[in-house]
Design a protein around this nucleic acid. Structure first.
Lengths: 161, 161
DNA sequence: TCATTAATAGATAGTGGACTCTATTATCCA
DNA sequence: TGGATAATAGAGTCCACTATCTATTAATGA
């Protein structure tokens, strides 16, 4: 449903949204804060820039920032930009000519996909940040710092949530 | 969410459920009816047998049949048998120690996953077959025959639904 | 006991997603 | 104008998933 690139893209966009109005943030800083392999993240940031979700600025003091308000960016559009997100079943996967609509099996799967897609389409990046929870994305509540995360801990490690 | 093996497994189990009470069906016949590569399907059928969803019978007249009533087999258990199906987010993917619960980003994703998982858990194979729709899984309504599908048409082909 | 049918098991090959590396281009600042 | 910073671009690597192939074992029936 959400591939690795989509997960990484969401982290990056949420990170940038949390520092809204500040200077653009460099790829290596974003990579550190989001714990994403830097070389791979750069590709993803490039993709998000091409899709007009981010704006890139080269040179000293450059980096990436949001191209629009975080309330105007849906979770779904970030995912789709990376060819991620739920993918609907358009036609009978078996190619049965008589199946002019999906059969019950594929309809079940597609309905679930559609439901998730709808939720992601109506949830904005701002929605993820504006919640009252004391657990904030990418941010360790013990320090309150943005980038103060356990660098070096592999993604598969335990603890936290 | 559902990998290729999971999709193929569901097709096979639905196919067998539709011929409930009949003789076991051979792997090659199941492969033809479900349009799954035979060699790969055999591995999947073996997996489903190990997980006690199917019963295998060797020798002449042998093949595979359901190990229990189709109403007692959930969609989810077929998927899980193949290491497929929605996978919940157990812990913070970034490993942030202070995240004792999921943050809003990962909670959003996990809630969607949980919803799909719940639906798959409460939907049985029988539910997929008992519907009143005239479009039946794996079955071309133009012929009404079980295995009478467009053999040779690749899975990516157009038409039907 | 023998031939036939069909599942079992494991080695092998192809493919796409995840990730890396390096060279290049653009921008800023002194 | 030159050096530092940082994005851009694309080729290349790695591995899990997908799929195939072959030899073996088991069951059936004559």
């Amino acid at each position: 449903m959400i591939n690795q690139a989509g997960e990484y893209a969401l982290r990056a966009v949420v990170h940038l949204a949390r520092r809204d109005g500040l200077q653009p943030d460099s790829a290596s800083d974003i990579a550190a804060a989001t714990k994403v392999p830097q070389a791979y993240l750069q590709k993803i940031l490039r993709t998000l820039t091409k899709q007009n979700i981010l704006i890139a600025q080269r040179g000293m003091g450059g980096g990436f920032k949001l191209a629009k308000l975080s309330s105007a960016i849906s979770v779904l559009e970030v995912l789709k930009a990376c060819d991620s997100g739920p993918s609907r079943i358009e036609r009978c996967p078996l190619g049965i000519a008589g199946h002019t609509q999906l059969c019950s099996l594929h309809r079940l799967i597609d309905q679930q996909t559609a439901s998730v897609e709808s939720t992601f389409a109506t949830t904005s990046i701002a929605d993820l940040i504006d919640n009252q929870d004391h657990i904030h994305p990418l941010c360790d509540p013990n320090t309150g710092s943005l980038a103060q995360v356990n660098l070096g801990v592999p993604n598969t490690s335990n603890g936290g949530g």
